[in-house]
Each structure stands twice: as structure tokens, then as C-alpha cells.
């Protein structure tokens, strides 16, 4: 079963993923009640430690924790504390001394949640680290597909966009692969990571071929700073070749669904009309995100390691 932390989909077994999805399906029911709160994590403390700014993911974790009755503290270390030359690990250790029951970490550098997990007694949940992983996003995407299609096994999913810089793409490639779906990626060649085929995906540079007969099209957000750089000639060229609209969707299965991790650059990754209407399921993804995060917090609660274990992990100061 799931270990102490949730750092990436790569570490999970299929049975772990199924357990999280099953738990999240039950958590959805709590969100439909008049009283959207259960006492499960009453008296527990969850710290949202976001080194990189985020509104949606942080709010989603905060609502998830509060629906389970936990106290949720948002901690966004400002540049000032970095100026005071407090290292990331020092910040994490300081927080750990306040005995949280779970720490949710986002950082712009890959691997930081793992480093923090190594020194903390509390379970650590990765809420996105650089271009590495964003496991709860992939889990909510799996849940959305499962609820729409009734299964994941045997489906074909195409991920479109900046695969190279995307932690969402990486987590989803692992996630859908482990659950038995065929994963295709489609992007302009500079946005395709080297040797990505070794992750078991089929690579396309033509959008039309990539979405031929597929069940799910997942568009990734294009970061504007990358549009100006060497990766793409222009926004207009990207949207005409890789932007999803109803015309291009005709090549996919009739009951195709369109997903996006948000926020959408309207008219770039998705046409305006598709952003707001079926077959896009963007707001369902957001709703399912709360249920997935409730499930992860529930399953990882009670996994704080014994104080004894953290003595040798500290920087020499005994406790």
C-alpha cells in the first residue's frame, strides 16, 4: 500500500492508484451534502508549503483539508526569508517542529518535495515540483476519466502541448499507463522530451494523427514566457496547429472528452467555445480535485513517523 508520502505517480502501484480513486469516489459524496464536513481529521494540522505561487491547487488542498475537519495553515515563504538565507530545509524543519500531520509542498525545482520528505516526520504530498511530477493532478484526471467512461483500461488518451516542461504530462503518462490506457503525445518537436518513448508513449507531431479515434484529449497549458522563446514561432501558429477546436475533434471518437489542467489560455490551447462547453470537462476536473485531495489526506493520515526516527535525520541537534 501507499507509503508515507505521495511524491509522484512513478512510485505508485496500480493497486495504490485504485485505492485512491475508490476512496475519492466516496469523498465526492461528502461534497454533495448540505453539511460538507466530516470529523475524520479533527485536531489534525495540514501545512500548505507553497514556494511557487498557486491559487487553484492551494485552494483545492485547503478545501479538502477543511472538509475533513483538519486545521489548514497556508505558508508561502516570501523572498524576504530567502534573503535571510534560510534554506528550504531549514524552513521545512522549522515547520516540522510545529508537529503538522501532513505537509503539502510545491516548488519550482524538481526534487524539493523529496528532499523535504527525507527530513520531515510528517507525510509529504507533492503539489507540483518543477517539470517533475504533479501527482494529485494526474489522479484527479484519472478519476474524471473513470467517471466519464466507466473505465480507464483500454482507452486511448492523447496529451497535447508542452510535454517537455510539463509535470502534469509526466504524471499523467505514468498514471494512464499504469492503469492500462494507451498514451499518445502530440507537440511541436522542440516540446517533446528526448527518449520520451521509453515511458511507453506514442509520439506524434501531427495533431490530426494523434487524436484519430481517441477517447480523451488532454490539452496542456502553454506558458506564455515559452511562446516568446525558441520553442514556438508564435501563439497564432501554435493555436492553428495544436489548439483544439470542434473541427479537429471530428477525428477523435464521437464521445471524446476534452480535459485541461487550467487555467486555460482561451483561444490558444482550446477554442473559446470548447473551454466552456462539453465535451470539455474542465470544471468536473476541478471538482474531482477536491475529492482526490481528501482521499490522499485521509489515506496518508496516521503516517507521521515516530520522533525516534527523526533524530538521525536532523542536522546534528539532538531532540
Amino acid at each position: 500500500m501507499i507509503g508515507t508520502d505521495l511524491l509522484g505517480i512513478e512510485d505508485l502501484e496500480r493497486a495504490d492508484i485504485e485505492r485512491i480513486l475508490d476512496t475519492a469516489e466516496h469523498m465526492r459524496e461528502v461534497g454533495r451534502r448540505v453539511v460538507k464536513k466530516v470529523p475524520t481529521l479533527r485536531g489534525r494540522t495540514i501545512v500548505n508549503l507553497f514556494f511557487e505561487s498557486s491559487t487553484r491547487t492551494r485552494a483545492s488542498f485547503e478545501i479538502a483539508g477543511k472538509r475533513l475537519s483538519a486545521d489548514v495553515i497556508n505558508f508561502s515563504p516570501s523572498s524576504s526569508s530567502l534573503k535571510k538565507s534560510e534554506s528550504i530545509l531549514d524552513t521545512a524543519r522549522t515547520l516540522d517542529a510545529m508537529d503538522p500531520d501532513a505537509v503539502v509542498v510545491r516548488h519550482s525545482v524538481a526534487g524539493v518535495p523529496k528532499q523535504i520528505a527525507d527530513v520531515l516526520a510528517a507525510p509529504v504530498i507533492n503539489a507540483g515540483d518543477g517539470a517533475h511530477e504533479h501527482p494529485t493532478q494526474a489522479l484527479l484526471d484519472l478519476l474524471t476519466v473513470k467517471l466519464e467512461k466507466g473505465r480507464i483500461d483500454g482507452l486511448t488518451v492523447t496529451i497535447v502541448g508542452d510535454i517537455l516542461h510539463s509535470r502534469v504530462a509526466r504524471s499523467n503518462i505514468y498514471a494512464f499507463g499504469k492503469m492500462g490506457a494507451e498514451v499518445r503525445i502530440a507537440a511541436p518537436p522542440p516540446m517533446i522530451p528526448a527518449a520520451v518513448e521509453t515511458l511507453g508513449v506514442k509520439v506524434f507531431t501531427s495533431l490530426r494523427e494523434a487524436i484519430e479515434g481517441v477517447d480523451v484529449v488532454m490539452a496542456l497549458r502553454i506558458q506564455s514566457e515559452r511562446l516568446a522563446g525558441c520553442y514556438l514561432p508564435s501563439v497564432r501558429e501554435y493555436s492553428s496547429t495544436f489548439g483544439i477546436d470542434r473541427e479537429k475533434l471530428k477525428y477523435a471518437k464521437e464521445d471524446v472528452i476534452v480535459m485541461h489542467p487550467g487555467p486555460v489560455n482561451r483561444g490558444v490551447e482550446l477554442s473559446h467555445d470548447l473551454t466552456d462547453h462539453r465535451p470539455s470537462v474542465i470544471l468536473d476536473q476541478v471538482r474531482n480535485g477536491v475529492a482526490i485531495r481528501m482521499a490522499v489526506l485521509y489515506l496518508l493520515s496516521g503516517r507521521r513517523q515516530e520522533d525516534a526516527q527523526r533524530i538521525d535525520l536532523g542536522s546534528g541537534e539532538g531532540r
Partner: peptide, 20 residues
């Protein structure tokens, strides 16, 4: 399950079941 009084304890969390 989400109302059980033993969830304060360490260890594996029990499976949830249907509420309808």
C-alpha cells in the same frame, strides 16, 4: 467510516463504503 473514533490512531486507513 469517516466518523470512527479510532482514526486518531496510526496505521492503515479503513476502506470507505457507500453512502446514499
Amino acid at each position: 467510516t469517516l466518523y470512527r473514533d479510532d482514526l486518531k490512531l496510526k496505521g492503515e486507513r479503513p476502506l470507505l463504503r457507500e453512502t446514499e
